[in-house]
Amino acid sequence: MNEKVKDIAVRIKGLRLLAGESEKTVADAIGINVDEYLKYENAEDDIPVSILYEIAEYYKVDMTEILTGTSPKLHDISFVKKGEGLKVERFDQYKFESLAYKYSNRKIEPLLVELDPENSPELVSHKGQEFNYCLEGKMQVIIGKESFIMEPGDSLYFNSTLPHKQLALDGKPAKFVTIILL
């Protein structure tokens, strides 16, 4: 595992110990089995972004604190220059860049996402709703049994509790903005 994953695992374990909770209690609360939770806490496996959201919500902390060890300070305005978003490297199939990580108590999570055409991610689901806006390339979004082809300028809004994934098409990377309602 890379150092970022190890650092995140240490912070997650630290939150659990500070809260005085057992591994099983936390795993049950976020909806996964304890063996899976232990893999995340021991840095034996990458932690999906959806699980990071669940953990942050459970401990009532901002996800930025789990990712970086520092809490966001801005309350009214957060300005992030191009290329300066917080990189969230969770899966080989997706490259995430948090575009509002400096803003405290966010109600939405805007992310710039780049899809790798060489990899096909698994279906995921998480609380809330999600908005995708295609910026570059051609991509396919699979939601449950439905499929949508998106090109630059196309948008899609959906219930993110439904299993979903995004795929780059035509052997080229694709970029999109996703906004997740927390």
Rank of each mutant, 00 (worst) to 15 (best):
K81C: 06
P48S: 08
E21D: 14
P48H: 07
K95M: 07
V88Y: 10
I30H: 00
V26T: 07
G31C: 01
H75K: 15
Y37M: 11
E97C: 02
R90G: 12
K95R: 12
S98Y: 14
D76G: 10
Y37L: 10
A100M: 01
G14C: 09
D76Q: 12
N42C: 05
D92F: 11
I32E: 07
G31I: 00
D76K: 13
N33T: 06
L17Y: 11
K87T: 01
G69N: 06
E21T: 10
K87V: 10
I32W: 05
N42V: 08
L67A: 01
L15S: 04
K24Y: 09
R16H: 06
I66P: 00
I47M: 10
I32K: 03
I32A: 06
S50N: 14
D92R: 11
K60M: 11
E44G: 15
L18T: 11
A19C: 09
G83R: 01
V49P: 09
G14Y: 00
A29T: 06
K39G: 00
K81E: 11
K24W: 09
E54Q: 13
R16P: 00
G20M: 05
S22E: 03
T70L: 10
A29Y: 06
E65R: 12
G14V: 02
K82H: 04
K95E: 13
A19M: 03
E57P: 12
S71M: 13
G85C: 04
E57N: 15
A56Q: 01
G14W: 03
K81W: 06
R90K: 10
Q93N: 15
L52I: 10
D62K: 07
D46G: 13
F91Y: 14
L15M: 02
A43I: 02
L17P: 06
L52F: 04
V49L: 14
T70Q: 12
V80Q: 04
A56L: 01
L52G: 03
K24R: 13
D62A: 09
S98D: 12
Y58R: 05
I66S: 04
R16G: 02
L52E: 07
T68V: 02
F96C: 00
Y37T: 06
I55D: 02
H75M: 14
R90P: 04
V49C: 08
S71Y: 06
E41S: 07
S50P: 09
K87G: 01
L86N: 08
K73R: 13
V34D: 05
L38N: 15
A56V: 02
L86Y: 01
G85S: 02
L15C: 02
A19L: 04
